[in-house]
Amino acid sequence: MPKLILYIFRDILRNKIVIALSIFLFAVSFVLFNLEENSSKAMLSILNMALIITPLISMIFAAIHYYNSYEFIELMLAQPISRKKILSSEFFALGLALSVALLAGLGLPLIIYQSGIDGIWLLTTTIPLAWSCIAIAFAITVNIRDKAKGIGTVLLLWFYLSLIYDGLILFTMFSLSDYPLEKITLGLIALNPIDLARVSIMLKMDVSALMGYTGALYKHFFGSVYGFAFTFGILLLWIIVPLFIAHHSFQKKDI
């Protein structure tokens, strides 16, 4: 399996989309750092960009990669090797390749411009988010045979998780503002990996503002190690659970 991961990983690294992603992230980060005289603002812009780009590219690319590898997967499945190993190899290879792309595209400028803790934080958040998005994309594509339909569904899901979901939360809060919604809101946030990554970044960048919120639960949540443990714990679940679903479907699937 390590060899299989290695070869798929190398194949993906040479892929045009991945190279373009790296170059794009690198160029934008570089320009932002150069353009903004104060690096904290550049950092904020990069964070915002990373939160949009990472899930989008991870999900779409994972879906495209899955469909393009279909014949290869079929061929490999004719070999004495389990389906679990094949799908895991594809997953890990993708995860590693996108991690490398993010490290090169975001990590390098962050090192060059010495962003310190904030830079490390950005990477420790976006990389698990990328893995989670790959797992989610797999859980969908494994269940949809048609390539266009599969990619379309993944794209829709990205749009939903990035934008519509937050709109629904906002709407809920407007309409139920008389009720204590703290726990429900935290629960809703936990149900969306992109929101979770965003909250984890907020815990670093906006803790001063978050401490202004009066609710005891939020305060406990944001003001302690508990918040970090919670966001990363759930983010980890957001990798494991979709991957489990993908494996489960893939196991029973007709290739």
Binding site: L51, G167, I169, S177, R198, M202, D206, T214
Partner: peptide
């Protein structure tokens, strides 16, 4: 202004929706 009225919406800080 939204946060002033609905403090709970703080959780949406830095969301793409809020940027929009």
């Amino acid at each position: 202004i939204i946060v002033e009225q609905f403090p709970g919406t703080m959780i949406l800080l830095r969301s793409i929706l809020i940027n929009f």
